[in-house]
Design a binder for these strands. Structure first.
Length: 569
RNA sequence: UGUCCCGUUGUGUAAUGGUAGCACAGAAGAUUUUGGUUCUUUAAGUCAGGGUUCGAAUCCUUGCGGGACAACCA
């Protein structure tokens, strides 16, 4: 470990949450031979979203802090929901966020044989049995949180019969739903998960990895703890809803280890509160619905809270990691304000992105005392926050476009922009004074006339004359048109709970995507996809070259903080 | 009318028996070739009652409030 790495991990130690402290305690007590190994265990049934990023940063952050590793494991125990496409996207997103998992990706499906052998052991120990009842009958017997359940009649089945039936389940002799394997625990337990939970069910469907090798598949509760155990995971971090599963997690491990020598590493489950973001739906089921019903353009639609959506929208890995860091980790339910996410991306992009002139709603400004046909190259700084970004030259000429709302016929007192007889600086160019303007029949301003002061060219000795405002502009004959996609929030309601049972279409924002055009400096369109620019005073926009559009496309990442509109509203 | 978990400014998150701090959001001001950025200042909090203690956000207790759990999902 280099000195830098040590310093870095010490710095991270400054913001230890309760999970770090728990792990530290384990280390002090000498558990797991002083080892730490975490894992990130997504089910490949959808794309990763911002909520997963929190878990990712936590698990990989813990690994980094303790100079340990983190496994990537696909929890693929249900072939009806899982696809290779999701596996691929998850690997890509984890990499993009900047995390390196330990060795090759793991799959719960790789452990099917071991899991089966352990199930046989449980049957032999009289701790598991085959139940012939239907899902409905079993649900009825299970009771409710307030009433105890009752024992299944099949609970007394002999070990020999159970062994035989379970093997025949595996061989495919039964139809789906005909038989299941259950653990024999306690139907009267106050914890519903301990009321003879299902270990295996029959699913006659091809698995994306194991193919047709299996037609019985382990349930989450039977697979997860053992997968952790097989990999030697020391700390199995998951979200709060699994808290009531913990006794079962430990019960299965106790049973498979009974009669064996005590393991050196005994995995432990620790829960934390999942991330909630206002105006944002995080349920994979709902996101899948948005994709399947073509309400959005795909999993990577820039309005989606998926990692790939955020990426396409111009979010950087750094900004997402910063966000995960700032939201913290605790056990209480939380709803994070999206303004924090937006702060994080502005914070990062402000340092990185080149400022360019782009005009979304152009109106022509004619400099009447500037020679026709003349073009002057003006030097402008690429990024005032980053000296190494350098300068570039932009063409200036007699006719330029400025933003329509940068001109007001009757400007209020604190309007720092252009109006009749008012003076402003054209960024990186001259100070101009408005002499006249032309309106069309509807009263819409179509042309603004100005004179320029030749002594005020940007960078010249006398150029430091003070004017109220500075405007962005593009040369009318030296600009190109680009498509601009303005993304607003996909959802209007601030309460994530509202989406639970209600048809979430009621909360969809019909104005979440507006497509318009802009006038922009030509060189920007040569930029690679995912390059993000700051359009002066408008916001951050990410290059998204789209084959369906003839023009280059810019996705709006996030707006700038705008005190002017706030004050006037 | 069960079991488990959780209650700290508007929103998050620290303080682990010893000065209630930080960030976002808000407000005010300064700087600014973009009203952005940067900098300064500022308001606002321990769910309630009781107990232990020299001292409680922290420990105990009783309430109150919120959440999770009744998929052959994970």
């Amino acid at each position: 470990m280099s000195t830098d790495n040590i310093t870095e991990s010490l710095n991270e130690g400054a913001k230890l949450n309760f999970i770090f402290q728990d792990i530290e305690k384990d280390l002090i007590e000498g558990k797991n031979e002083g080892k730490v190994l975490t894992r990130f265990p997504p089910e490949p049934n959808g794309y990763l979203h911002i909520g997963h990023a929190k878990s990712l940063c936590l698990n990989f952050g813990i690994a980094k802090h303790f100079n340990a590793a983190c496994n990537l494991r696909f929890d693929d125990t249900n072939p009806t929901k899982e696809e290779v496409e999701y596996v691929d996207s998850i690997e890509q997103d984890v990499k993009w966020l900047g995390f390196d998992w330990n060795g090759e990706p793991r799959y719960a499906s790789d452990y099917f044989q071991q899991l089966y052998d352990w199930a046989v052991k449980l049957i032999n120990d009289g701790k598991a049995y085959v139940d012939d009842q239907s899902a409905e009958e079993i649900a009825k017997q299970k009771g409710t949180p307030n009433e105890p359940g009752i024992n299944s009649t099949y609970r007394k089945r002999s070990i020999e019969e159970n062994l035989d039936l379970f093997e025949r389940m595996k061989k495919g002799e039964f139809k789906e739903g005909e038989k299941i394997l259950r653990a024999k625990i306690d139907m009267a337990s106050s914890n519903m998960h301990m009321r003879d939970p299902i270990m295996y069910r029959i699913i006659h469907k091809q698995h994306h990895r194991s193919g047709d090798s299996w037609c019985i598949y382990p349930m989450y509760d039977y697979a997860h703890g053992q997968s952790d155990f097989i990999e030697g995971i020391t700390h199995s971090i998951c979200t709060l809803e699994f808290e009531v599963h913990r006794p079962l997690y430990n019960w299965f491990l106790d049973q498979i280890l009974e009669g064996e020598s005590q393991p050196k590493v005994r995995t432990r489950q620790i829960e934390f509160a999942r991330l909630n973001l206002n105006y944002t739906v995080m349920s994979k089921r709902k996101l899948l619905e948005l994709v399947q019903k073509n309400i959005v353009l795909g999993w990577d639609d820039p309005r989606m809270p998926t990692i790939s959506g955020l990426r396409r929208r111009g979010y950087t890995p750094e900004s997402i990691r910063m966000f995960a860091d700032k939201v913290g980790v605790a056990k209480r339910d939380n709803v994070i304000d999206v303004s924090l996410l937006e702060f994080c991306i502005r914070e990062d992009l402000n340092k990185k992105s080149v400022r360019v002139n782009a005009v979304l709603d152009p109106v022509k400004l004619i400099i009447t005392n500037y020679p026709e046909g003349k073009t002057e190259m003006m030097e402008t700084v690429n990024n005032p926050e980053d000296e190494t970004a350098g300068n570039r030259l932009i063409p200036f000429e007699r006719e330029v476009y400025i933003e329509r709302d940068d001109f007001m016929e009757n400007p209020p007192k604190k309007f720092f922009r252009l109006g009749p007889d008012l003076e402003v600086r054209l960024k990186s160019a001259y100070i101009v004074k408005c002499t006249d303007f032309k309106v069309d029949d509807d009263g819409l301003v179509i042309e603004i006339y100005c004179t320029y002061d030749p002594g005020t060219k940007s960078g010249m000795a006398q150029s430091d004359r003070k004017v109220k405002g500075t405007l962005h502009w593009v040369a009318a004959n030296h600009c190109v048109e680009a498509e601009v996609r303005l993304y607003d929030r996909l959802f209007m309601d601030a309460e994530p709970d509202g989406y639970k049972e209600v048809d979430f279409k009621d909360f969809l924002n019909p104005d979440s995507l507006k497509i318009t055009t802009c006038k922009i400096e030509p060189w920007t369109i040569q930029s690679k996809p995912l390059t993000t620019f700051q359009f002066q005073r408008i916001g951050y926009f990410c290059v998204d070259k789209d084959s369906t559009s003839e023009k280059p496309v810019f996705n709006k990442t996030v707006g700038l903080k705008d005190n002017w509109t706030k004050k006037t509203n």
